[in-house]
Nucleic acid binder design. Sequence first.
DNA 1: ATTTAATTCAAACGTTTGTTTGAACATTCG
DNA 2: CGAATGTTCAAACAAACGTTTGAATTAAAT
Lengths: 209, 209
Amino acid sequence: MTKRSTKDRILDASEALFARDGSSGASLRAITQRAKVNLAAVHYHFGSKDYLLEAVLARRLLPLNAERIRSLEAYQQKAGRKKVRLENVIEAMVGPALRLSRDETKGGRIFMRLLGRLVLEPDARVQKLLTGQFETVLKKFEPALTAALPHLEPQDFFWRLHFLVGSMAHTMADSERIRLISGGICDPDDTEGTIQCLVTFLCGGLRAK
Amino acid sequence: MTKRSTKDRILDASEALFARDGSSGASLRAITQRAKVNLAAVHYHFGSKDYLLEAVLARRLLPLNAERIRSLEAYQQKAGRKKVRLENVIEAMVGPALRLSRDETKGGRIFMRLLGRLVLEPDARVQKLLTGQFETVLKKFEPALTAALPHLEPQDFFWRLHFLVGSMAHTMADSERIRLISGGICDPDDTEGTIQCLVTFLCGGLRAK
DNA sequence: ATTTAATTCAAACGTTTGTTTGAACATTCG
DNA sequence: CGAATGTTCAAACAAACGTTTGAATTAAAT
């Protein structure tokens, strides 16, 4: 067994503690202690606490969005000249994210909780990074979405996209509450079932009225 | 003009800074400075920083949930012996919350951002307070909801309720991003328009398939 | 093997943190 | 009035914070 590098151990520990305690609540001392690494290693490898947070985000966000786009393009190719079904567009958008959020080997659940917290953090650099990522994805998805929802006014279109993001983010970030409030009826560990349920809900909402 | 009491000034300042910087990011010194109050006043009036946070929450949550239940009961009375329409049940659930979130005189926008942040905070006391509040509301709404959605399996029912909470929370907490990503097309200050748009989307999703 | 560079480490830096203290001030009540 | 209670205040507390430093150690290159 070859043990993980210092950098990776710091990233893993940061992800976990940023998610649990928030970006200001998690201290570098707690992080380095968990990573079994010297305190100064953070500044040596990442420069500062802020840059460390950016690195934690980039490590997961870049592959995720690449996978979303890849998935959409696969559906587009399969559809050939016809337009992609709404269900498939939505699946390409929320499927990869939800699958990542449930993939423990990639720290998914933890990362998604962190992401959920950061959405409301007003730190300028973090916000720029997040909205930048979102716009990249949106630009790729917008044509397919409008094609699948031709009757929708622009105003309703963007609002419903906003609602979609809310449902998706909430489902990814908070996977245990649903088990609690449903009295165990719903199982968030059934990833594909959750995705299908979410896609159905979202398509119903997007097509409403 | 009669100026606000020390306690209220502390609550106002705490709400704003907890929302902006997080519960651990906001320092008591920043809070008391903003409130124009002595540092020790927090401990005198509230006991500790943690109890202060609880007080900030209780001040808004208790009236909000009372208003939700009041609104649902008004619809039930108007419906008489018939069951309440789904649109009205949802309006009673999300309407008061969204109206509060847009009511500047009650610090709504600020409070909702705080609420959005706290949902993912694992602090035990905060979590107990939040889920307790939610369960109180759910218990009142569940009969009306299942009556309006008779064909829905329990599993789908709870999942969709979960998605609903996500859309609602996201819309309440983050009122400026929608303006940004829509290029100004959507106006989050149009409270009633937003509510109607959200209700339509949610009912569409809840009734899907 | 010797030099050079990359990495780790313990220790300390100056701030800022939540909390406590005891005296000063204000208000209320007998 | 004076006693008593409620409230504010400046100052200090120890602890924890992010960051820096310079020497010790390891790895790579010559």
